[in-house]
Simulated scan of single mutants.
Amino acid sequence: MEVFVEPQEGSPFCIRIGCSDTVLEIKAKIEKHRGIPVYRQTLVFDNETLDDELDVEGCNILDGSRVWLIVAPEPPQSAKIELCVGTLPSVMRLPIEVQVNDPVKRLREVVRSLEDVSLERVKLYADGTELEDGRRICDYELQDNSSVDVRIKPPKFMVMVLPWKADLKVAVEVKQLDKVKVLRKELEKLQPSLELDLPSEGYFFIHNQSGMDEDKSFQWHGVEMGDTIEVFRGTISR
């Protein structure tokens, strides 16, 4: 469908959108069409400001609808603010100075270095909303002394699997509380690309020289991060 965008200044223009597009995706299309950064855009339809996470259908936008575009002034490049950053559930906060035009990823990188964890494990939230890498600090209207919550995702739990008649181990990501049968599904996913030898007549898993009950968890079996699990041909009699 096509909608007409009415900016405060300048002539209206038309963009093509899909029914499942979010407001944020519409803003991205406007940025591509007119070069107006997403973080400076506010869209209004039917006298309501549209939230980024809403989709076209949820906003009741129809083919030929008119959407108003409000463009915020570009903040000065040198504008700085101090954010109060802390790791949940601790109430302690650390002041971190950022520029309002800094991307969220830059703040995540600072937190990552302080927490000494991988970047992918660091998630930032303000007022319950996750701060996304593709946006800037100013997109979230953060001001001096605004609070930013840090959540550190638990590390990936990896086990090393030694397939049947193989010399090389394969690293497989699972959860420690997963049942062992999850490992069977993960190996089947990897089989086409890694050409794993998974005996067609059946196989079972061995950890620390003991057969594993696939209806029990890795934790129940005492499996730790990086432990080796071997694949053996045959079945276990109960």
Rank of each mutant, 00 (worst) to 15 (best):
D51L: 14
S11D: 13
P199V: 01
G128I: 09
G10K: 10
E141Q: 13
H33K: 15
L194P: 07
Q99H: 15
D144H: 15
H221W: 05
L142H: 03
L190Q: 09
K105T: 11
V5L: 10
E31W: 00
R93F: 06
G134F: 02
L54F: 03
E141Y: 10
E57Y: 07
V111G: 01
S113G: 06
W220M: 09
D21M: 13
D133N: 14
E214P: 09
G211W: 07
E57M: 08
I26W: 01
L194V: 08
N145P: 06
M225F: 12
V3G: 01
I70L: 15
E57I: 08
E109N: 14
D63Y: 05
V67T: 02
S118K: 10
V180R: 05
L198C: 11
E82H: 09
I15S: 00
S20Q: 12
V111T: 00
N101W: 02
D52C: 08
P75N: 00
I81H: 03
Q143N: 11
E25R: 12
H207R: 03
S217M: 06
K216T: 11
G35V: 01
D178V: 14
S146L: 09
K29V: 08
P75G: 04
F45L: 05
V150A: 04
G128R: 05
C84N: 15
L119Y: 03
P89A: 00
C59G: 03
C59W: 03
G128D: 05
V174A: 02
K185D: 12
K105V: 14
V71K: 10
S200A: 15
P7V: 08
N145F: 13
V111Y: 03
F218H: 04
M158W: 12
E186H: 13
E82G: 08
E201H: 05
E25H: 07
P192D: 07
E31C: 08
I36T: 07
K32D: 14
Y203V: 05
Q143E: 12
A166V: 06
K153C: 09
T22E: 09
P199W: 04
V38F: 00
E109W: 09
K189E: 12
D51M: 12
L168R: 14
D51Y: 09
L24V: 10
K181D: 13
V159K: 03
Q143R: 15
N101Y: 00
V122T: 01
E201G: 14
V172Q: 05
D51R: 11
L94D: 05
I96W: 08
T22W: 00
D178S: 15
R184A: 07
R93H: 03
R108I: 00
D102H: 12
L124A: 05
S237Q: 14
K216P: 08
A166M: 14
S147H: 09
Q143C: 12
D21E: 13
R66Y: 07
I36A: 04
N60A: 15
H33V: 13
E132Q: 14
L43V: 02
V231T: 04
L107R: 02
S193F: 11
P199A: 05
L114H: 08
L162Y: 04
T42Q: 11
N101L: 15
S11G: 10
E57Q: 11
P75C: 02
S118I: 04
V91G: 10
K156V: 10
V56S: 00
E214V: 13
Q219A: 13
G10P: 04
G234M: 08
T235C: 13
N47Q: 13
G64S: 02
P163A: 01
P103S: 01
L142F: 01
D213T: 06
L124N: 01
